[in-house]
Nucleic acid binder design. Sequence first.
DNA 1: CTCCTTCTGGAGGTGTTTCTCTAGAACTCT
DNA 2: AGAGTTCTAGAGAAACACCTCCAGAAGGAG
Lengths: 196, 196
Amino acid sequence: MGRPAKHDPDDFIDAAVELFARGGARSVALSAVAASIGAANGSIYHRFADRASLLAAMWLRTSARFERGYRGQLGEPNLESVVAVGPWVVEWCRDHPAEAQVLQAGLRAFGPDDWPPEARAALTTPDDIRRDLRRIAKRLAASTSATPDEIAFAMLELPIAIVRRALHAGRAPGKREVDLVRGLMARILGDPSDRT
Amino acid sequence: MGRPAKHDPDDFIDAAVELFARGGARSVALSAVAASIGAANGSIYHRFADRASLLAAMWLRTSARFERGYRGQLGEPNLESVVAVGPWVVEWCRDHPAEAQVLQAGLRAFGPDDWPPEARAALTTPDDIRRDLRRIAKRLAASTSATPDEIAFAMLELPIAIVRRALHAGRAPGKREVDLVRGLMARILGDPSDRT
DNA sequence: CTCCTTCTGGAGGTGTTTCTCTAGAACTCT
DNA sequence: AGAGTTCTAGAGAAACACCTCCAGAAGGAG
């Protein structure tokens, strides 16, 4: 009922993410977002209460998408799937360069202090991934010589760090980054060539 | 000759870095910077042509300071000093939390596209550190089983990544981060316990 | 067809930020 | 002391961004 929407809310988020990837948080002006998808200035406020809500939506959608893929890739975690998740992160960033920039910038870049309460409430969940990682890492620590902290780092922050340089230089991560992740994770989790 | 300056240019940069660490790039308003050191609004323009110049100065001074300390710590690079430089990065971030936030945010957060030409010219130099790292890593590759890429990563990006989580959570990196860096670098560069 | 709802389009109001400009203060050099 | 220079202090112009608001378009329900 009512006039059909011309633009999907996701269209606005897409445009905002794209603008962010190009020019940083400052260039995510609501007028610029609306203009870049051919919508009128005021039309945006039917979907997002204010600028903070749009920034919140950018971050929440992006981190949720990443986390969803990450968990799917991890499956029921064992040593193999843990090693495989590293290269997967690199590939995800290559396939979603703009969203990868959002993740790289980190939550702080999106001013969570200004978010509306319901958006902030949605933030408590994503931190669960760290808890899960620590749990998984503890279980795996028995089958490797690495500490749980080292395993957890290798599973998430290591591949992200490797992608970082490529993204900051404005190019997509490629084979070199995949190789680097694979090599380092093997070295940290116990080189397979050691355990033939 | 002339009236003595009441504020050092560095005072403005200090205030800007502090504001950035607290509230992100958006809260670095020239008026806020001036106010936070008790200077008049217009007084800032005798030192920085515009906002972009101040942002450029923030980034350039911070990265130069870090690089200077880093090179000093590295000295004439050998396996020992390379391993020691990792924990040093963590400690530098703990001792300079606001500047560490600047480094973490990355060049992109400071809108280098808007910088004046002379500031952009100063950017070509810092990238030399990557070249140097590759050179050092190549030399060291002979005495370890790691590839040059892995060594270069372990020397700079690894400790930075480890500090990242602590900084984003708003706390200073501590012993835990130092231990993690030490452990991982040992594992990557060849565990000393392996080569007794 | 008429009412109701939802959305569009775009004109501004409001507030903030950047930047300019000028009078004059503080200091040095001759 | 006088001249010249550098900086301060702060008012305010100009630009920009956020947000409001409302007339009307586009559909569904009775």
